[in-house]
């Protein structure tokens, strides 16, 4: 158990346009272990929620408590230091295409190395050794010096996972990590992420479209619709009725179409 890696969200609101909230007051406790899936239709604010945690998006109101800090209020150096402890895996991998695989993985250490040393590629020896180990672990040990844009989608996401783990994060966020991949590769990527995070005791929060995949890999599922949390339970507790509520099939329920 990792109570110090739990996240507590209170009254989280995000408005991109004034008066049109995407997140309508989220209250959520995410335990500090295992994998938590967030499911829900497109446009319901799953990505926004996850990006509020590492502040790629600034929330309009509310609190995000993590290790005694309110992430929603952090600024400057404090925010950067909090981000170092939060790894992220992206839907479209977001590798820096013209950098090599090794350089992309070492990007995970940029929060700890001075810009000048990073520019000269002077990383600590143990970081480089760990990067090699991680690349071996994700099966890309022979691709170290290749440019990221020469890799396939599945390979790129493996680099993305290695980059996030390279941060030695205390929590891992994943925003639709398998949505750009074929079904077989999706399963492999979820397996890899579960294994890498599980072995290091890193809790994972993952946005995911594929409910079956979520049930298979996650210990807890959160259902969102229309900017609100409507389900929070284990995969076995998730019923057909819950799914209908989440994906908005009911009569007179405009749900996420609003």
């Amino acid at each position: 158990m990792n109570p110090d890696r739990a996240i507590r969200i209170r009254g989280l609101v995000k408005e991109y346009k004034k008066g049109v909230p995407v997140l309508k007051g989220i209250d959520l406790d995410i335990s500090g272990d295992g994998i938590t899936a967030i499911i829900g239709p497109s446009g319901t604010g799953k990505s926004t929620l996850i990006r509020c945690i590492n502040r790629l998006i600034d929330p309009t109101a509310g609190e995000i408590l993590f290790q005694g800090q309110d992430l929603a209020k952090l600024k400057g150096i404090e925010l950067r230091e909090a981000r170092r402890r939060i790894g992220m895996v992206f839907q479209e991998y977001n590798l820096v295409e013209r950098l090599s695989v090794m350089e992309n993985v070492l990007t995970g250490r940029l929060g700890y190395v001075s810009s000048f040393n990073a520019w000269l590629r002077r990383f600590p020896k143990e970081d480089i050794a760990e990067a090699f180990n991680l690349l071996d672990a994700v099966g890309l040990g022979n691709f170290v010096n290749q440019r990221a844009d020469s890799l396939s989608g599945g390979q790129r996401q493996r680099v993305g996972i290695a980059r996030a783990i390279m941060q030695r994060p205390e929590i891992l966020l994943a925003d639709e990590p398998t949505s750009s991949l074929d079904p077989k590769t999706s399963v492999e990527i979820m397996e890899l992420m579960a294994e890498m995070a599980g072995r290091r005791n890193i809790p994972v929060i993952v946005n995911i479209h594929n409910v079956e995949l979520a049930k298979r890999f996650c210990q807890r599922m959160i259902g969102m619709t229309g900017g609100k949390v409507v389900f929070n339970g284990t995969p076995s507790e998730l019923t057909e009725a819950n799914l209908k509520e989440i994906y908005g099939a009911g009569e007179g329920d405009k749900g996420w179409l609003e």
Partner: peptide, 15 residues
């Protein structure tokens, strides 16, 4: 993605 790792402004520029 680079910003999300906690990199500072100049590191984001460089990487």
């Amino acid at each position: 993605a680079v910003r999300a790792t906690g990199a500072g402004f100049f590191s984001v520029l460089v990487y």
